[in-house]
């Protein structure tokens, strides 16, 4: 499998490396890495903010074909704490080396499954006590899940093949809720108008935002209007 460095590819509106940096800064993490596996082209897209020396070593040692945080974690649907991979022989091999480069073996990988059989793996690491790690994890896991899917969808959609297949369609309910939001209604107003719970509004809005590749509702409204999914109000 070939490794493609996304930082060398042009991304018009988004700088993916900056995105990793901002995730680390926001969530008190040391490093973050993304690897996307495309089943059609059989390639791995790598994108990390690890020190350059470790990246070079990792590629030279061909760890992409042995690293359990990629190869095993992709079979889970839940985030895999690296603690669970410790008994694997390949874990010691990769992480005794990583240690020499100042990289902690305390971390987790979030597997993302896409609609085309594509898989994304978003890993983060943090050197701290096990107690602090458990607390941090519980606090940031939901946000990390969303960051992982955002990153993965962005990478997959930027590929020629997937952009032809198009982004996932919005449901009638999602469009309806975006339309009321564009008309200036609050989530509670919209819930009252549609006679559904506040939580239902939220679950649809979150789904709509992610389908549109938007990080905020305002951004989602903008994209929905520009795609002609809703009317400007």
């Amino acid at each position: 499998m070939a490794v493609i460095d996304l930082s060398k590819l042009p991304f018009p509106d988004n700088d993916l490396e900056k995105f990793l940096d901002s995730v680390c800064e926001t969530h008190e993490l040391d490093f973050a890495a993304y690897a996307g596996m495309n089943p059609v082209t059989q390639t791995v897209h790598g994108f990390v903010n690890y020190p350059q020396e470790w990246q070079t070593h990792y590629v030279n040692q061909n760890y992409v074909n042995r690293d359990p945080t990629l190869l095993l974690a992709k079979r889970s649907i839940a985030p895999v704490d690296w603690q669970r991979l410790r008994q694997e022989p390949s874990f010691d091999m990769v992480f005794s080396d990583a240690h020499d480069f100042g990289i902690s073996d305390q971390g987790l990988t979030i597997p993302v499954r896409g609609p085309f059989g594509d898989i994304g793996l978003f890993s983060v690491t943090r050197k701290c006590s096990a107690h602090d790690w458990a607390l941090l994890k519980a606090k940031i896991l939901g946000d990390l899940q969303q960051a992982a899917v955002h990153l993965h969808d962005h990478v997959i959609q930027s590929e020629a093949l997937s952009s032809v297949l198009g982004p996932p369609a919005l449901s009638a309910r999602e469009i309806e809720i975006l339309q009321w939001t564009a008309a200036g209604k609050s989530q509670q107003d919209t819930a009252d108008i549609l006679s559904i719970s506040h939580r239902t509004i939220e679950v649809h809005l979150r789904s709509a935002r992610e389908k549109l590749g938007a990080l905020t509702t305002a951004q989602a409204i903008g994209r929905a209007i520009s795609r002609g999914l809703i009317y400007p109000a």
């Binding site: 649907i77 993302v112 499954r113 896409g114 609609p115 059989g117 939901g142 899940q145 969303q146 992982a148 899917v149 955002h150 996932p168 369609a169 919005l170 449901s171 009638a172 309910r173 999602e174 679950v203 649809h204 979150r206 789904s207 992610e210 389908k211």
Partner: peptide, 26 residues
């Protein structure tokens, strides 16, 4: 995960009545 293939997106079409399924990281 609802981001990838799952039953509501692939086989339970009748329940959704042809509408698109929810898709979210969480």
């Amino acid at each position: 995960q609802t981001t990838g293939p799952h039953m509501l997106s692939e086989v339970f079409h009748e329940i959704l009545d042809g509408d698109a399924p929810l898709r979210s990281a969480t």
